[in-house]
Design a protein around this nucleic acid. Structure first.
Lengths: 162, 162
DNA sequence: CGTGTTATGTTATAGAGTAACATTGTTATA
DNA sequence: TATAACAATGTTACTCTATAACATAACACG
């Protein structure tokens, strides 16, 4: 039996992720400007997803002026290009682990530490698509988020409980 | 072959939904106060999910004083009791079509008219649970939302295009 | 009754996101 | 290389969503 690999992709080196983003944008003829690239870098440098205002804070540390629209426009671009995902349940953004092919993604979100695991189980995606078709609903996007506790945080609780 | 019925439940009569909520809360020994009941009723009376501030507007039409916390606390209670769902991608709330058994639910959300179809496909839920288990992630809740266009709105577009 | 608990009122504020318009940068072409 | 068209960013102001903190009222129960 062949096993379908739905293993979450490891967090890449930020430099790798940025290089791939550069390549993809060049290929597509869209401009990964300095600002957009920096926002993507901020996301990749963070161990957990960030909200728009947290990103803004980092930009300001950079010395760059900026207001919310600055960040939201960059995020909009990165979302369009499939370079990041938005986690609606948390109002945060995170770098996409497989930016080559457009996809929806499924996420395991730790409510204690905020860390996120990105999956891509095609069976789940297909099932949802099928449900939509059965109801004559035109599916344009899927948002699949599982909330809970990651292994590390479970261990922590157990240790502290001793 | 047996077909698993994952058909969306029809929108119940608001009175039925409220009666069921009454029964469930009595059974559980929790208080469906007048305010909480009214918020649930407002949601059931609406053809589409509502945001907290839209609910607040209706309460004020009732003549009741109220500030945001009034609504959010009622919503929190209703969420805890599984009487409503929150659609994170839209920041809105909607009555739960199957409030008897606690569940996560999956939603088809029309981005044109706002109408929502609630599914409950146990296979999808199980697949997500399995993905979590495989990663030793403790899954506590699932948020599954499909965004797109409902049949009615697709028809509208076609007609207007003529 | 009183007393602890739960629910609601009230004020203030934090956090998330966008509209609208001004300015600057880029690109292409005359 | 001007310049016009367009793309990107700056800026101000605002709307919408949500919660913290504390005050008051309602309820439950010995």
């Amino acid at each position: 039996m062949f096993s379908l690999d739905t293993t979450a992709f490891p967090l890449p080196d930020p430099r790798q992720a940025l290089a791939l983003a550069d390549a993809l944008c060049r290929e597509r003829g869209v401009r990964l400007t300095e600002l957009r690239r920096r926002v993507l870098e901020i996301l990749w440098n963070s161990p957990t997803p960030l909200g728009a205002y947290a990103i803004l804070d980092v930009l300001r540390e950079d010395g760059r002026l900026g207001a919310p629209p600055t960040v939201y426009r960059a995020l909009e671009f990165l979302l369009e290009q499939g370079l990041i995902h938005r986690l609606a349940s948390q109002n945060v953004f995170t770098g996409c682990r497989q930016p080559g092919n457009r996809h929806n993604g499924q996420f395991l979100i730790c409510q204690d530490c905020g860390q996120v695991d990105e999956l891509n189980n095609p069976t789940i995606e297909e099932s949802l698509r099928a449900e939509a078709v059965a109801r004559k609903f035109e599916a344009l996007a899927q948002r699949v988020e599982v909330l809970g506790r990651c292994l590390d945080c479970r261990r922590e609780t157990i240790n502290h409980a001793v």
